[in-house]
């Protein structure tokens, strides 16, 4: 699903110095895998997600996702890729405040080909994340966990094969976070590839693989119990 080779990403800092965030990093993720990426703050985890999701194409190296080579794509093709191939889930949800839950889920429909049954599809997705009854609520009238579920439904709208999550439980309390983690597990079981950046032990425990970002490279931390049980079954 993900194939990254020798990826190097540098930022030019405010004072003009180059900061190398990713340094010849490579990554392979199979379709249907559930990968957690851990690492200290500032190690480049979010940067990695943005590269994989086609939000940032300013790097050296090679990245292909779902068979699409990202480096050569233009503005339009990249937008199309984000619309249909990947779904983003962020730590602070990033819902649009003056849109209802359902309208937030439907946001991606504005940028793709016109689907005949967008609203139906949006409602089905809200149902899937357990929020069918609150589809008309504004985000401010939803709890943190509910907001994140709306955001996940939005990420699923375009029918992506890959979900890219940046600290999806970072703003949630333990109990709420557990519910969201469970949702990711279910989605993974339904065949979605999940790559989640996380600080949370429980999230990485739910993943099949844990990778650590260290000095700009990814190193395999450990195969988790999930992977072991998955292998056993």
């Amino acid at each position: 699903m993900i194939h990254a080779r020798d990826v190097t990403k540098e930022y030019i800092d405010g004072d003009g110095t180059r900061v190398r965030v990713l340094d010849g990093m490579s990554l392979d993720v199979d379709a249907g895998d559930f990968v957690a990426v851990v690492g200290p703050s500032g190690s480049g985890k979010s940067t990695l997600l943005h590269l994989l999701g086609g939000l940032d194409v300013d790097y050296r190296g090679e990245v292909s996702v779902g068979g699409v080579k990202l480096a050569g794509l233009g503005d339009k093709a990249l937008a199309r890729f984000r619309n249909t191939h990947v779904g983003f889930v962020f730590q602070s949800f990033h819902l649009i405040p003056n849109l209802s839950a359902l309208e937030n889920v439907l946001l991606p429909s504005h940028f793709g080909a016109k689907p005949p049954d967008a609203v139906k599809r949006g409602e089905a997705l809200l149902e899937r994340v357990g929020l069918a009854a609150k589809k008309d609520r504004a985000p401010v009238r939803l709890s943190g966990g509910e907001r994140q579920r709306v955001a996940i439904a939005r990420a699923l709208y375009g029918g992506p094969k890959l979900l890219l999550c940046d600290e999806p439980t970072g703003n949630l309390d333990a109990a709420t976070g557990a519910g969201v983690i469970q949702l990711f597990q279910e989605l993974h079981r339904e065949g979605l590839t999940v790559l989640a950046v996380t600080h949370e032990e429980r999230m990485s425990a739910a993943a099949r693989r844990v990778l650590r970002l260290k000095e700009g490279k990814l190193v395999e931390e450990r195969a988790t119990a999930q992977a072991a049980s998955g292998d056993a079954s």
């Binding site: 937008a79 984000r82 983003f88 940028f111 939005r154 709208y157 375009g158």
Partner: peptide, 13 residues
């Protein structure tokens, strides 16, 4: 605007 870009808005959009 960033969110729109993440869900599929191009710069032209």
């Amino acid at each position: 605007i960033g969110v729109m870009q993440a869900v599929g808005a191009s710069r032209a959009d």
